[in-house]
């Protein structure tokens, strides 16, 4: 049975989101995990172009974040990792966790850290890693390293 890590990506507006998502996928693949990305339509297109020759994203599955809600149970998802910058991403993370009922980790980031997002996620038993970052990816890269080590 192949166990998958589901990576949730919502709105790709923050400049650091796509590069750090590719970094996360790359690090998880090095640990031997198979990755399924469930993302917003534009985020999928940005990922596709950012790694056009699929150096990092080869063998990675990808599905639309809304269509995924219907079929995600068909996959053996072991864990969920989500990027959270907006309220809608808190909602998607909690919804996917409720559907799959698997350990879930959220990377909460932004120009400022919204404590309400962290509280809401933690109330739902979601482990939160937070970093104040929007243009400079390094704070998020550092928490991804920590997350990958702990997961």
């Amino acid at each position: 049975m192949i166990l998958l890590i589901l990576v949730l990506i919502g709105c790709p507006e923050p400049p650091i989101l796509i590069p750090t998502a590719i970094y996360l996928v790359s690090q998880m693949k090095k640990k031997g995990y198979k990755i399924l990305i469930s993302a917003n339509f534009s985020a999928i297109k940005l990922l596709d172009i950012a790694d056009y020759d699929k150096y990092y994203l080869s063998d990675v599955g990808v599905i639309d974040i809304d269509k995924g809600l219907k079929i995600i149970k068909e996959f053996n998802i072991e864990k969920i990792i989500s990027f959270v910058n907006k309220d809608s991403e808190v909602s998607y993370t909690i919804t996917y966790k409720e559907i799959l009922n698997v350990p879930t980790y959220s990377i909460v980031f932004g120009k400022s850290i919204n404590q309400d997002f962290i509280k809401t996620l933690e109330e739902r038993d979601i482990k939160v890693y937070s970093a104040r970052a929007y243009h400079n990816p390094i704070p998020v890269v550092n928490i991804i390293d920590k997350l990958v080590e702990e997961i």
Partner: peptide
């Protein structure tokens, strides 16, 4: 509940 398909193709997203 979150993730429930209330009507064909429309899923509830949020906090139950």
């Amino acid at each position: 509940n979150a993730g429930e398909e209330i009507i064909e193709g429309i899923f509830l997203i949020g906090i139950s």
